[in-house]
């Protein structure tokens, strides 16, 4: 399988604190990759560095064969690299359908293309994806009135609406009702298989990530501690130390 994302020695400093210290990781096209690590190990910072939220201090990010580490958020996402946020971000004063419609790939076009009337196809796709995450009966509800878990699902559906090649998910199960987690895992896998979206998932829930990911990278103190298959990572003594030490 070809490499879709290749993070090479990315370093990010905040003042004296090194949040990411020469972090490297690879995501192959079509897989589900996992990113784990104790709190404060630099996972979300790495997401920000990949998606262009702030400048990196060293290293390079290759997406789909081209360097993107000099680009800003907008151009990067338009190449098909989308993300969701740990603290979900949706458009609160717009209905779920409107949230979906404005997240379509076509909405990333220039202003003239936005002035054409809303496309019928996008409408159906929006409804399909809302059913996919189980929010269809909430489609005319304002985003801001949904529960936290529902907002999380909406944000996931919005990300899928933009038809990304690679989707970075920041703790998709945090704040979700435990009884619904299995359903969510199923949806992530179906998004991967049926919609062909490569996933890189930050996750704290070990059970979830071990079942979901084919390949896992573990960060601690801003460095890559271990990487490999779920079994390799699970049995790595350094990973155990990092988690036990952090607790």
């Amino acid at each position: 399988m070809t490499l879709l994302l290749d993070v090479r020695d990315v370093t990010k400093r905040y003042g004296g604190v090194v949040a990411n210290d020469a972090v490297s990781l690879q995501v192959r096209e079509g897989e589900i990759a996992g990113l784990i690590g104790p709190n404060g190990s630099g996972k979300t910072t790495l997401f920000g560095a990949i998606t262009g939220a702030y400048p990196v201090d060293g290293g390079d990010v290759i997406f789909n064969g081209a360097s993107i580490s000099h680009l800003r958020v907008g151009p990067i996402v338009r190449q098909g690299l989308a993300r969701t946020y740990q603290q979900t971000r949706i458009y609160g004063e717009m209905t779920c359908m409107e949230n979906m419609q404005i997240s379509s790939r076509a909405s990333q076009g220039n202003v003239m293309s936005l002035l054409r009337l809303k496309a019928r196809g996008a409408q159906t796709r929006a409804e399909d994806l809302l059913s996919f995450v189980g929010l269809h009966e909430k489609r005319f509800e304002y985003g801001g009135r949904l529960s936290f878990g529902q907002q999380k699902l909406l944000e996931f559906a919005m990300a899928l609406m933009s038809e990304p090649k690679l989707l970075l998910l920041d703790e998709p199960t945090a704040g979700i009702n435990p009884t619904l987690i299995n359903g969510l895992i199923d949806r992530l896998q179906r998004a991967n298989k049926e919609l062909g979206v490569t996933l890189l998932v930050i996750e704290h829930n070990m059970r979830v990530i071990m079942n979901l990911a084919e390949h896992i990278t573990c960060l601690a103190h801003g460095r890559v501690l271990a990487s490999g298959t779920p079994d390799e990572v699970r049995n790595d003594p350094r990973v155990l130390d990092a988690y036990l030490g952090a607790q």
Binding site: R89, Y91, M94
Partner: peptide, 26 residues
Amino acid sequence: LYGTRFGLAMNAIRDDEDKAEAMGLH
């Protein structure tokens, strides 16, 4: 204008401009 996707894009920027940018809106 408010009936087009441009109108939705304006509202998206109003609600969360960073998110709108991160979703690829110009």
